[in-house]
Nucleic acid binder design. Sequence first.
RNA 1: GGGGCGGUAGUUAAGUUGGUUAUAACGCCGGCCUGUCACGCCGGAGGCCGCGGGUUCAAGUCCCGUCCGCCCCGCCA
Length: 594
Amino acid sequence: MTSQRTHYCGELRAGHVGQEVRLCGWVHRKRDLGGFAFLELRDREGVVQVMIDPGAAPEAGAAAKEVRPEFVVRVEGIVASRGENVNPKIPTGQVEVHARNLEILSRSKPVPFPMEDQIDALETTRLGFRYLDLRRPALQRIMMLRAKAARVAREALAERGFLEFETPILTRSTPEGARDYLVPSRISPGSFYALPQSPQLFKQLLMVAGFDRYFQLCRCFRDEDLRADRQPEFTQIDLEMSFVAADDVMAVTDELLARVFRDTIGFEVPRPIPRLTYADAIRRFGVDNPDVRYGLELIDVGDVLGKTEARFLREPFEAGGRIAALRIAGATFSRKELDELNEVVKPYGAKGVANAKLAGGAWQGGLAKFLGGEPGAAFAQRTGAADGDLVLVVADADPDTASTAAGRLRQHLARRLGLVKDASWGFTWVTEFPMFERDAATKRWAAKHHPFTQPLREDAGLLESDPGKVRAQAYDVVVNGVEVGGGSIRTHEPELQGRVFRALGMDEAEAQRRFGFLLEALAHGAPPHGGLALGFDRLVMFLAGTDSIRDVIAFPKTTRAACLMTGAPAEVDEAQLKELGLAYKGSRGGSPES
RNA sequence: GGGGCGGUAGUUAAGUUGGUUAUAACGCCGGCCUGUCACGCCGGAGGCCGCGGGUUCAAGUCCCGUCCGCCCCGCCA
C-alpha cells in the first residue's frame, strides 16, 4: 500500500490468513495478560487484534509493555486464524496478527475521552480536542460519507455538462440578505471586502459569459445567529444554467439528489419530486417547508367559526385573519396536555389553542359553547370530525401568524403522536414563492428570495400596483420539513430588473451604485438563466442521520461562532490594526460600548 | 436582542434544609496475571466546585454580576 504498510487494519479477513503484513495505526485498546498481550490496532477502516507473544518476539513484548492507548505503532507479522477465539463483534474478528515486530512511531498523552462511538463527553470537550473527536469511528464514517457525497455530486453534474468554477472569496458587500463578514483592505484604508453569502452574482455573470452550465461546491458566509443546523460558514452545491425554465432546474436537481442519495446510502428518491405551490403549502401545512411524511393537514374554518359569538375567533377573522383547524382522530388529551399546547404556539406569536371534542354527537371542550346547532354541524362537516375526534383551532388576525403557529403545532403533534416513521423520507418542491415580503422593521418590501429572481410573467404587471401579490419563479426543495435547497429563474432583462429594484424602494442611482456591474452585464447579451443551491451540510446531515450540523463539519464553530480548538476569533496585534487603519472602540473581547 | 437548560477530579456525573475530611464510575500511575476481547485482581495518586463580588460563625449549596456551552424565538435562504 505504501512503503510503511501493506494493508489497512480494518480490511483483514479470513482470506488474508498466512500473509505477511505490515500495519500502521492507533492502539485502540491493550489487554496485557502478563505473558501474552493483545493490542487492538485501529485505522480509518477499522480495528484488528494483534497478538504479542514475548516468548516468540521478545522485543515486541518489551515494546508492548510501554504501549498505551492512542500510541501510533507499526506492526509486522502474520495474519492468523483465531480458531475458537473468534470475535463476532468486529468485521476482522476471524483473524488476528501475530506480531513479529512492534515499533512505537508516536506516543500519546492520556486522551480526554475514549475513541468510541458511544461517548458521554460534553461537546465543549469534544470541540476542544476536535482532532480526537474526529478520530472516533462515528465521525470518521461521517467525514468519509461527506467526501463521497461531494464526489458523487461532482460526477453527476460533470456528466450533465456542468463546468466547475471558483468564484471570489474576497468580494463586494451587497447589503441585501444576511449580515456580511467584512475584511478590511490594507491598500484602501476604510474600505472592506465582504465574504460571499453565496456566489449568486458571479454565477449569473458566468452565464452572461456564455458558459451555459456552472457548478461549484462553495463556501458561504453569513454573520447571523446560529442554530443546530446553521454555521457561520457552510457549503453549498451551487449551480446555474442558461436557456432554462424552472422545470429544467428542478429536473436536474431531482436527478442530482437521486444520485447522491442512491450512491451514498442506497436510498431511491421518488422522481419526480412532488411539487407544491407556496400558497398550497401555507394553506395545507402552515409553513413553507412542510414535512410531507404525514397528513394532519390544516383545515380552514374561518367562514364556519368566524361569525360565532366567540370573540377570540370572530375578531381576528373580521380583521382579515385566519382560523385553522387540525383534526386528530380518536385523540385523548388531558386538560393539562391541552393547556401545554398553548405553550407550543406562543413563541410564534399566537395567543393559544382552542379545542373541541366530538362525543356522542355533541361538542365538548372549550369551544363547545359556540358550537351548538348549525355552526357545530358545519364545523363537524368541514373538519370531517367523527365521534371521538379532537379538533384544535388556532386563530390570529395576522394570517401568517395563524399559519405558522398552526403549522408548528402540526409538527409538534406529529412528533408527540408518533406519526413520523423512523428512516422515512418526505421530499417536496415548494414553488411560486411570493416575490416580496414586508420587512418587519422598515415596513418596506424586501426580496423574499433575492432581488435577481424573476417574477412570474403573468404577475409582472403587479410590480408597481400590488407588489405583495407578485409571485416569483422561485423554488425550494424540502426534505422532511427542512429546506435543503432553493433557487430561481433570474431576471435577464435590465428593464425588468430595474422595476424590481424600484419595487424594493431602490432608485436608479442606488441600484447603479450597488449592482451597476450586474445591470451592465445584463445589457450586454444575457441569456435567460436560472439555478439553485443545495445546502450541502444539511444534505450530509440527512445522509448521516444526525441532527447537528457540527457532526458533519470537520472543524465547526460553536453557537457563538467560536472555534474552541484554535480560539478563533481572537484579538490581533496593535500593529496589525494600525496597518489596516483600524482602531477598536470599547472593551476588547466584550461587546462594544456604544 | 429575548427565553430555557447546563458548568463539581483527566472524563462523565452525585452532592439533601447552608454544617465535620466534597463522593462514585471510567480513565491515569504502580504491582500481579499466557487466549483476552469493555480482560481480571490488589494498591495508589488526582479538586481554582467556571470566574468575581456579597450574605453568614460557616457557601459546591443562598443572592448579585459575569464568562462559556447547548436548545429555541427573533434574525438567517
